[in-house]
Amino acid sequence: MRAPSPGLSAEGAETFDPLPSTAGPWSPDAQHGGPPAALLARAVERLPEAGDGRIGRFTVELLGPVPLGPVAATARVVRPGRSVQLAAAQLHDVARDRVVATAAAWLFPRTAGPGGDPGPLPHTPADGSAHPRPQAWHGGYLDAIEWRWIHGGLERPGSGVVWMRAPALVVGEPTSPVQRLLACVDSASGASAALDVREWGFLNTELSVHVLREPIGDWLCLDAETTLADGSVGVATSSVYDERGLVARSAQALLVVPRRAGS
Rank of each mutant, 00 (worst) to 15 (best):
F202E: 03
G190F: 08
S176H: 04
G201R: 13
D196S: 11
R198N: 13
S192M: 10
V185G: 00
A194W: 05
V185T: 13
L181I: 08
Q179D: 11
P177H: 10
A191N: 14
S176G: 13
W200E: 02
G190R: 03
S187R: 00
V209S: 02
W200Y: 13
G190Q: 13
D196M: 07
F202R: 02
A188L: 15
E199N: 02
G190H: 05
A194K: 09
L181D: 06
V209G: 02
L182R: 02
S176W: 00
A191C: 14
P177V: 12
V211M: 08
N204I: 06
A193L: 11
L212R: 05
V197D: 06
C184M: 14
S189Q: 14
H210A: 11
S208I: 14
L212V: 10
S176N: 01
V197Q: 03
L207N: 08
G190E: 07
W200D: 05
L182G: 02
G190N: 07
D196Y: 09
S176Q: 07
L195N: 09
C184F: 00
S189D: 09
V211R: 05
Q179F: 00
A183N: 15
D196G: 07
V211F: 04
A191L: 13
L182D: 03
T205H: 03
H210E: 15
V209M: 01
F202H: 10
R198K: 10
V178A: 14
V197I: 12
Q179T: 06
A183V: 06
V178N: 04
D186M: 08
A193Y: 14
R180E: 05
A188M: 15
S176K: 03
L212K: 00
G201Y: 01
L195E: 06
L182T: 04
T205R: 13
A188H: 08
N204F: 04
L203D: 04
W200C: 03
E199R: 15
T205W: 01
R198W: 07
E206F: 01
A191V: 15
G190K: 11
V197S: 12
T205N: 09
A183T: 13
V211T: 08
A193D: 02
L181A: 07
A194R: 11
G190T: 10
D196N: 14
D186I: 11
L203R: 10
S189G: 12
L182S: 08
E206H: 13
A191D: 11
L203I: 15
G201P: 00
N204C: 07
N204K: 10
H210G: 05
V178P: 00
H210M: 10
T205F: 04
R198E: 15
L207Q: 14
W200T: 11
D196W: 06
V209A: 09
S176L: 06
S176E: 14
S189P: 08
G190W: 07
S189H: 12
